[in-house]
């Protein structure tokens, strides 16, 4: 009898705690929305999102510059990371001798855990000077090195281990017999990878890429350290950018005396949260659909 009571009690307690994740999501959305209400009431949403006039002291809070900063940096990171990661995962999962694979898998795991600030330090010490002294002159422009490209490179390198780790795992789940079926028809390894293995692994690979993308998208510190943080919409990859997370990190907590300032920054945080939510929902929908059409 006592055992059953205990069982029921523990169940109720666990249920309460199991509600925490859902509760936190709601609390975050509601909390951030609540705090950004003042600015949403004072300004139309279109102005907040699409005006690039950011003059807090004059009461102008256009976030467009920062949104573009985030998009530029994420796009560059994705453009660098996706092809490199896919090719590297294919090499490690399909071509590399087993020894090499056994050696590199834990290494990739280790690297996935390195904190983003450390990537930022590397960016400041290596990538920024490299762009300033070599890459930008090569392209015929002058740049401080603190720019979209630097941030993109640092982010790309940061998400490498994450994407590669998951992609390799996914490629390994494709049964060997499927490869054999294609090879037995006289297909080359590459034809097998391209037409059969990748196709079979596509849902998982998409998930890996989305994972990496959402990591890059919300990354704060590494970007903050190398993006330059100039409030202007970048025109080339050699221009500085000021992504949303960097804006929040730099300004939040300082400027609480300026009216509406914190409200605008929390709106930025809310925007980041909503994008993550949408990406999650969209990724799920895509995965379901891809799974259905492939399997």
């Amino acid at each position: 009898m006592i055992r059953l009571v205990k069982d029921k009690l523990a169940g109720a307690g666990m249920l309460a705690l199991a509600g925490v994740p859902g509760l936190v999501v709601f609390a975050m959305i509601l909390g951030l929305y609540g705090r950004s209400r003042p600015i949403l009431a004072a300004k139309p949403l279109s102005e907040l999102l699409f005006s690039s006039s950011w003059h807090p002291l004059r009461g102008e809070f256009g976030l467009f510059t920062f949104i573009m900063g985030t998009l530029w940096v994420t796009a560059v990171a994705v453009a660098i990371a996706i092809p490199l990661c896919l090719l590297a995962s294919i090499y490690l999962a399909e071509y590399a001798p087993r020894r090499l694979r056994e050696w590199t898998a834990p290494l990739i795991d280790l690297l996935a855990g390195i904190p983003s600030v450390v990537f930022g330090v590397w960016g400041v010490l290596v990538v920024v000077p490299l762009i300033k002294n070599h890459v930008a002159p090569l392209a015929g422009v002058s740049s401080s090195g603190y720019c979209v490209l630097a941030a993109g490179i640092v982010l790309a390198v940061m998400v490498f281990p994450v994407i590669v780790h998951v992609s390799v795992e996914v490629l390994k789940t494709v049964p060997n017999e499927v490869r054999e079926a294609s090879l037995a028809l006289g297909a080359t390894r590459w034809q097998t990878i391209r037409h059969v293995v990748m196709r079979k692994a596509m849902p998982g690979v998409i998930a890996a890429v989305v994972l990496g993308l959402s990591r890059a998208f919300g990354e704060t510190m590494a970007v903050l350290m190398v993006a330059g943080n100039v409030a202007a919409v970048p025109k080339t990859v050699f221009d500085p950018a000021y992504p949303l997370p960097a804006l929040i990190a730099n300004k939040y907590g300082e400027m609480l005396s300026v009216p509406m300032y914190d409200s605008a920054l929390l709106l930025a945080a809310l925007a980041l949260l909503m994008v993550v939510l949408l990406v999650n929902v969209a990724a799920r929908a895509i995965l379901l659909r891809v799974e259905r059409s492939v399997q």
């Binding site: 975050m28 951030l32 959402s214 990591r215 998208f217 919300g218 990354e219 704060t220 997370p245 929040i248 990190a249 939040y252 920054l265 929390l266 945080a269 980041l272 949260l273 993550v276 990406v279 999650n280």
Partner: peptide
């Protein structure tokens, strides 16, 4: 997937 800066804010 929520960025850590959002947790901070």
């Amino acid at each position: 997937g929520v960025p850590s800066i959002v947790y901070g804010a």
